[in-house]
Design a protein around this nucleic acid. Structure first.
Length: 876
RNA sequence: GCGGGCGUGGCGAAACUGGUAGACGCAAGAGACUUAAAAUCUCUCGGCCUUGGCUGUGCGGGUUCGAUCCCCGCCGCCCGCACCA
């Protein structure tokens, strides 16, 4: 009986319509079953989806469908991270409105995602640029403001004088704006900040509770937060050189133990003391300017020479009033870490040592390795940064580094300078408060009003939303909100006088810092329904790219805490489980050189192989195209493969199955068409096997048939079920795929017997069950195929609403095991024996083996190692 | 520089963290079916020699009855942070 090939173009839309009709994936908040929240990082609507999206959402969908089958009430929503620069760039380049551009992209991409057959609750969909969403974000902002979690301060920013905008550090390339190419200036602007540093310690401590996060990500966050334990030490100014009125200067150090090795103080060019000095001395002024300019170029930092200038100011050593040290302005001291001032101990720090050599400052070794000889220990070109024993340090001599730290801390805390302690213990963090002001149009307006009389006035909640005006122009650089004729002019909510709206919008990272909470009740007037948020959160499984390991995840962790403080929910950590999936990468193709280089999409070329050499030829012109490096799929390099083509020719199931096969999900994959065909063969094979055997399986009981090993079929079915279940639990999709292949390979012969109408009733019944298991374990990956097969075998209802089958322990465990038998560690034979055979029984059986007898040649073995149910090793 | 990870066939990768190395898939080769093609099926497929072995998980040592896995020392690649006091 010839079976028709499975036709995804017919089947997939049919089942998608069916799921939709029956509201299979709508999630109710009042469902009594245990909850499971699975979320993939929502996409930026850049235009079309690419294979990276397919991989991300296929993984999430497997988890969602699997957990649904396991009986959980699954929340699996989708939305759009829709504010951001590309929309404004498109507006400037193509004269389209950011709003129109964004919503059109969303419509396209939504259609593409729907064609993948994802089990999403589309009723909860939103875009962050929806007024309904950003209104609630403004609400949150106001609540944070009230709780003191938001503040304004002057801050240095990278300012592009051509585009009239602030640039993020990564948008400054070699000191120039990435778009305009203009030299970037450092400007002081008043900006809004979120007080993320209020939670530094908690954000650090709680990392330990996130045991379902990759170790790597936790470590990255830990380093980013950057906790260090040290001291603040105040140094009395002995000589001000007529440059400052200050009486003392405070430094931060993690090595107070090395205090007797100090030979200079260094301060940042932005330190108040440096500013005082610069005001009095043009040379210092010039040097400070130079330091600031150098600071803009990120790459230059690496190689930048350590430079300093002696200010002439002198300070007294905290433990010796007669010991004076020079104060330098130095280009390597950062104003925003510690106090912007350090003491230099050249023997214990490589940078300080280089600096000391350059400016002829003393180098006194104060720490030596435990086993070194104090008489001969010296510092050459390399500082000794390790722990050890104190030397040349007066009352600290002989102490360990650790004890010296304690001693100095105790003494300085007790001592006073003026009327304050001379030193205090201080924990310092690298983490900075989060600046959220952006001088851009396409973002969430910051809901405050500036009044000449009342100052900064929050917009009353009743007046929300502060809506973005639609009638804006992009013909000039700068923020369109600034030059809008009317939008910024409003009355002060306090006094009613003319006032001005804040025209800055929020960093788009704010939008993505709480969307996962909004999904729990997107219909709410308030930002959240706390009951719903508390019930659903934390997200049980969050899936996304490693590129968000720090910022997005840290900001979301902060937001959750801030929302807890302001009563919007009552959990601390937003994401219980995190999985970082690998990228989909592809070769790049280009023609032309230098500035004229033009990228070519894979769709426009064909690859030819000649004498082992691969060549790329342009389809239209036949011209040879250069094959470039393998990189992450991106619009700019055009090395994207549009899933539409693959879905159109092979179907969504094949695309899904392929991206889940072969490679571990956390590793990058190189896209290859050959792999797609392999996956498609599997889809067709499952369909053929199931459909060919389906009829005879149903009728087998009525007639006698050939013997078949029904038990073997049941055993592999249940073993596979158990293993695949474990793989899905661990998100090891590639291993699940391999096991399913093995399973299908094992079923092929018995199913052929059945298809020929020769299966015994026992075999037919075992096959019936096995096929049912097969359909349900492939269903999370290839859901349309599963439905089609399910109908073919006469399954009740939909696979999508069927439960997960339970494996039987008795069928999973074998009564007999086959042990490899090694002689001196090399495998020489197999031994099949009862599973519960004891040591002596196994030994006896092993000694009886021909191969063992031959190896022993009549001798007694030295040793026999029996690892139960695993291996036997005979040592001769 | 600091921190982390990885290195297994022609390719993507498995191997229950000390127990048969290379499961499964891709590619390749041979064959069957076919007028032919597609589809499908069967077999081969790390390397070296003659059956049977030997050898093999980046390289060199070590621990162990037994090492892809643990320890020491190299080599190579990738990622993150980067003047953090």
């Amino acid at each position: 009986m010839a079976t028709e090939r499975y036709n995804p173009r017919d089947a997939e839309p049919r089942w998608q319509a069916k799921w939709n009709e029956e509201n299979v994936f709508l999630t109710r908040n009042d469902d009594p079953r245990e909850k499971y929240y699975v979320l993939e990082m929502f996409p930026y609507p850049s235009g079309r989806i690419h294979m990276g999206h397919v991989r991300n959402y296929a993984m999430g969908d497997v988890v969602a469908r699997y957990k649904r089958a396991r009986g959980f009430n699954v929340l699996h929503p989708m939305g759009w991270d829709a504010f951001g620069m590309p929309a404004e760039n498109a507006a400037m380049q193509n004269k389209v409105h950011p709003k129109g551009w964004t919503y059109e992209n969303i419509a396209t991409m939504r259609g593409q995602l729907k064609s993948m057959g994802l089990s999403l609750d589309w009723s909860r969909e939103f875009a962050t640029c929806d007024v309904e969403y950003y209104q609630r974000q403004q609400h949150l902002f106001l609540d944070f403001l009230e709780k003191g979690l938001v503040y304004r301060k002057q801050s240095k920013v990278n300012w592009d004088p051509v585009d009239h905008t602030v640039l993020a550090n990564e948008q400054v390339i070699d000191g120039r704006g990435w778009r305009s190419g203009a030299l970037v200036e450092q400007r002081e602007l008043t900006q809004w900040f979120f007080r993320i540093t209020d939670f530094s310690q908690d954000l650090l401590d709680s990392l330990d509770t996130l045991d379902q996060w990759p170790e790597k990500v936790r470590l990255m966050q830990k380093n980013w937060i950057g906790r260090s334990e040290g001291m603040l030490i105040r140094w009395e100014i002995a000589e001000n050189a007529g440059l400052t009125g200050e009486k003392d200067v405070t430094v931060y150090t993690t090595r107070p133990d090395t205090l007797f090795g100090a030979s200079f103080l260094a301060i940042s060019a932005d330190h108040p003391l440096a500013k005082d000095a610069a005001a009095q001395n043009p040379e210092i002024m010039a040097f400070c300017e130079e330091c600031r300019r150098a600071g803009t170029s990120l790459a230059a930092l690496e190689t930048a020479e350590k430079k300093g200038m002696d200010t002439g100011i002198r300070v007294r050593h905290p433990f010796d009033a007669n010991w004076e040290l020079p104060v330098y302005v130095a280009n390597f001291v950062l104003m925003d870490y510690g106090t912007g001032a350090i003491f230099g101990c050249p023997s214990g720090d490589q940078r300080d040592l280089d600096f000391a050599h350059k400016y002829d400052l003393p180098v006194v070794p104060v720490v030596m390795p435990k086993d070194a000889d104090a008489a001969t220990f010296a510092i050459g070109d390399e500082a000794y940064v390790g722990d050890g024993v104190m030397i040349n340090s007066r009352f600290l001599d002989g102490l360990s580094t650790e004890d010296a730290f304690e001693t100095v801390a105790t003494r300085l805390s007790a001592a006073t300078l003026g009327n304050a302690p001379q030193g205090e213990l201080k924990v310092n963090f690298r983490l900075r408060d989060w600046g959220i002001s952006r001088q851009r149009y396409w973002g969430c307006p910051i809901p405050v009003i500036h009044c000449d009389d009342c100052g900064v006035v929050p917009v009353p909640k009743a007046d929300l939303p502060v809506k973005l005006p639609d009638d804006v122009t992009f013909d000039k650089p700068g923020n369109p909100l600034d030059r809008h004729p009317t939008w910024r002019h409003v009355a002060c909510p306090h006094c009613g006088k003319d006032a001005r709206r804040e025209t800055d919008t929020m960093d788009t990272f704010v939008d993505s810092s709480w969307y996962f909470a909004r999904f729990t009740a997107p219909w709410e007037d308030n930002p959240t329904d706390p009951a719903a948020a508390n019930a659903w959160l934390p997200v049980d499984q969050y899936i996304g790219g490693i590129e968000h390991a720090i910022l997005h995840l840290l900001y979301s962790r902060f937001f959750t805490r801030a929302m807890q403080v302001s009563g919007h929910l009552d959990v601390k950590e937003p994401f219980k489980g995190l999985f970082t999936q690998g990228m989909v990468v592809h070769e790049t193709y280009s023609r032309g050189e230098g500035a004229r280089r033009e990228w070519v999409t894979p769709a426009e070329i064909r690859i030819e192989e000649l004498d082992g050499k691969r060549r790329a030829l342009h389809l239209e012109s036949g011209e040879e195209i250069a094959i470039g490096s393998i990189e992450k799929m991106s619009k700019s390099k055009k090395n994207v493969v549009d899933p539409d083509d693959i879905i159109a020719s092979y179907g969504a199931d094949t695309a899904r199955f392929f991206v889940l096969s072969d490679s571990p999900p956390d590793r990058d994959v190189i896209w290859s068409e050959a792999g797609v065909e392999g996956a498609h063969r599997f889809v067709q094979r499952v369909w053929r096997l199931v459909s060919e055997a389906a009829l005879s399986l149903k009728t087998a009981e009525s007639r006698p048939g050939e013997e078949g090993d029904a038990l073997a079929v049941s055993q592999i079915a249940h073993k596979t079920l158990k293993a695949v279940q474990a793989d899905y639990d661990k998100l090891a999709f590639n291993k699940a795929v391999a096991r399913i292949y093995e399973f299908v390979n094992a079923l092929a012969a018995p199913l052929a017997t059945a298809a020929a109408g020769k299966a015994s009733p026992e075999l037919a019944s075992a096959l019936c069950e096995a096929v049912g298991i097969l359909i349900r374990i492939v269903a999370p990956m290839t859901p349309h195929l599963a439905e089609e097969c399910w109908r073919e075998i006469g399954g009740a209802g939909l696979v999508a609403t069927s439960g997960w089958p339970a494996y039987q322990d008795s069928l999973v465990a074998d009564n007999e095991v086959t042990l490899p038998v090694q002689i001196n560690g090399k495998k020489r034979a197999d031994l099949t024996i009862a599973r519960d055979a004891d040591q002596s029984a196994v030994e006896a059986a092993v000694l009886a083996l021909e191969a063992v007898q031959a190896a022993l040649a009549g001798q007694r073995p030295k040793k026999i190692i029996v690892v139960p149910q695993r291996i036997v090793n005979v040592v001769v």
